[in-house]
Amino acid sequence: MNPVYYLYLASLLFTIGAAGVLIRRNAIVVFMCVELMLNACNLAFVTFSRMHGNLDGQIIAFFTMVVAAAEVVVGLAIIVSVFRSRHSASVDDASLMKL
């Protein structure tokens, strides 16, 4: 199977993620879209690894997963605390630095 199709898929996923980040208001959905974009990158890395015949891309994909896991922990904590203080998970409601 031609690896380029995987790249197309990665691009599509990335675009969907980016569009979600820009369009959706709910912080959880935005967060999920960010994850989608990260994973689109992972897919691209793995594909490139396969195309070039070395493991560099796969290693970076692992790193990305670790970073994403850490980010999810911090991000979800922020979202929960924002929700507690504002009773809303909308990113637009958090447009001010202060309450």
Partner: peptide
């Protein structure tokens, strides 16, 4: 500079 995170995201993009 409207304070909406999404606007900044658009400009970054």
């Amino acid at each position: 500079q409207n304070g909406y995170a999404r606007t900044y995201a658009v400009s970054m993009f």
